[in-house]
Structures are given as structure tokens and as C-alpha cells.
Design a protein around this nucleic acid. Sequence first.
DNA 1: ACCTGGGCTTAACCCAGGTTAAGGCGGCCT
DNA 2: AGGCCGCCTTAACCTGGGTTAAGCCCAGGT
Lengths: 195, 195
Amino acid sequence: MRYPKLFEHIAALTPLPASEWLKAEVLAREQALDKRALFLRPGDPADRFGLVLQGVFRAVRVSARGEESIKAFRAEGELIGAYAEMLQGQPSMTSIEALEPGRVLAFQARDLQALEAGHPCWAQLARRVAEQHYILKERREQEFLDLSAEERLERFWQEHPHLHGRVPQRDVAAYLGITEVALSRIVSRRRKRAE
Amino acid sequence: MRYPKLFEHIAALTPLPASEWLKAEVLAREQALDKRALFLRPGDPADRFGLVLQGVFRAVRVSARGEESIKAFRAEGELIGAYAEMLQGQPSMTSIEALEPGRVLAFQARDLQALEAGHPCWAQLARRVAEQHYILKERREQEFLDLSAEERLERFWQEHPHLHGRVPQRDVAAYLGITEVALSRIVSRRRKRAE
DNA sequence: ACCTGGGCTTAACCCAGGTTAAGGCGGCCT
DNA sequence: AGGCCGCCTTAACCTGGGTTAAGCCCAGGT
């Protein structure tokens, strides 16, 4: 087994026999990405995804007007990919970019589909993943509905302490749905109040 | 089969043998709800869900400050329930309320779990449901990140034309994440521009 | 040592949406 | 009929965040 830590992490979601994990490992390809390099770019077929071995990634959507908003940050052990587009068989509208030099374990979606035929644990895992993703998005929805930008910022650091110092402030702003100028204001407001 | 239309609707998501649907039907209980009646209230165990037979429902989250925001509207053929809480085994933080006199087909979550042991179609259905829910929430997230309130309103009516005339404006506002005053302003602004 | 560029901050001004409060309008009850 | 209630509108004022633009700081490259 080449990636025992990753196996642990994933098997925590659902019972996953080591033998099945080994079958997946041989289908995977390790990929190194420089800082700023894209794992996926808009227009690419959304037929692959990756597990982050090293680094922090951001999933970005570029709007029609050219503004970019950030759907998620992903660090070690987490999944990267254009999940919604994959489910719908559409090309990616998301780009996934390394914020630091990183490494991912890349899979072809069709390879995993093939494994599903061999053992029910993979379908079960796919379900768990969908459910977890749903829970996170619903939490985010609630934050947009109920919280001000300042409160969302506070939550963000509570929920993502491991990203501290690893993601530029402008990207945090794009995640919160505000501009970097507004975020800078909020931060300095808080700084003053803290004195 | 008591609910052939519902069966069609659900079988469209994933192949579902009629024999399995019949097993589910006998576990279900039809429930009538008056206007304003609650299918689920905050604090209830999130161990049941329903299929809407008739009526429009809203899923409401009441914040700590007492403001209510609306997570979703659900009409005929759609699912109601505190889905995220159910997945996490938590009590409901959502209340689900009939906007009109309505009827739902109610299931116990544990009954459906029992069916899963008997046939793989149920696990497959659960996965599809999770994936569909995810896709919807991601779409909503994108709307909050990229669109103004006015643009979100326009999208809302594009995506939910069947709700026209069935949901009060204040609830649309609570769905968009703005106040009813702001929504009224937007509507009259648009009215003027249209002349 | 100097320049450059990337990322952050600050300031000035504007506008969308929040807040509060005062009606308006129609349906429903007695 | 009259009165009440639920829902929507309008207005006045306030505030948070957007926009634009200038400047700062520092790491890296020459």
C-alpha cells in the first residue's frame, strides 16, 4: 500500500477493505503541481478528480463578467474536482488551482465506476461523499442567509484553522463573497476593537 | 399501487422495480396538513421525511436572533425533511411548514433503511438524492457569490415558475436572503423600468 | 543596492439593502 | 356594515460593502 494515511482517512467515511483500496491505487497517478498550476481548467471534461497529498488548492468559478469567486479550499486528504459537473456529465466550469507547490493522487472517474461493479463499498463511498458535500454546502448556504460578512469571516477561521497563513487574504474575500478591500476593512475594524 | 405518479417521478432518478415501490408504499402513511401546519418542527428528531402529494411547503431555519430564512420551497413530487440533520443523526433545526392545505406521504427513515437491506435500488436512490440535493445547493451557493439580490430574484422565477402565486412575497425575500422591504423595492424598481 | 511586482491597506465617494414606521388594500369574521 | 388582520408598499434615514485610486511593504531578481 503506497498511501496508508490516505486509506485511513477515507476508510473513516465508510468500511473500505484494504484489498479494494489497493485496486484503486494502481489506477491512480501521482501528479505534481507548481504553485499557480491548474489541476483542472474551465472547459476541460470533468472526468477526473484527485486526492490532495500535499498543498492547498482552491476551486474557482469565473463569472461571465470575469470576477472570480471561490467555491472551496482543499488541503491534504481532501478531494478536488468539478464534482457537480461530473455528476451532470458537463464540462468543468470550475478551475482548480494550487496555492502552493503540491501533489495530488489523480483518478479517472470511469476507473472508479469500474470498481463499483466489483464491490459495493465503492457505491457506498460515493454516497457518503455526496452526503458530506451536501452537508457542507448547506452549512455555507445558511451562512449566506443568516450572517454578515464579518460573522462569515469569523466562522471561516473557526472551521478552517488549518488554512491559516496558507491562503492569501484576497482569496478569503472571494470565498466570503466580498472584495479584498471590504475584507481588509473588516480585519482592521476588528483589530481596533481588540485593543 | 396507490401512487403511480409518484412512482414515475422517483423512478426517473434511478431504476426502481415496481415491486420495491410497493414495499415502500405499505410503510408510508398519508398525512394531511392545514395551511400553516408544521410537518416538522425544530427540536423534533429528524427521523422522518415526506413526499409532497399536494401543496407547497417551506423549509425554514430560525436563527439565534429570531430571524427566519428559507432554505427551500417544495411542491408536488418533491421531498420534505431535515435532510442534513438526518444524515448527522441530529434533531431537526429546520421547521417545515405548509403554505397551503396539503398532503404528504410520510416515511420513517428507519423503514427505508430496512428496505436498503433487501434491494440495492434503495441505496442507489439514496445516492442519487444526495447528489441532486448537492447540485441544487451548489447552484444556490454560486448565486450568493456572484449575483445581486435583483439578479437572484430573476433566477428564482426562472427556476421556480410553478411557485408563481403560491408563495407570499415575504417568503421569497427570506429565500433570497433579503428583507421583504428590500424585495418590494426591487419589484417596484423593475416595474418602473418595464414601462 | 536598486527596481519590480504582488499583496495588502487606506481613503473618498456611491449605492444597495437594512431599519423603522406609517399607511394601503383586500379578505374574512361577527 | 364595520373592524380586524395579513400582506404589501412607500418613505426617510443609516450602514455595510463596492469602486476607484493612491500608496505601502516586502520578497525576489538583477
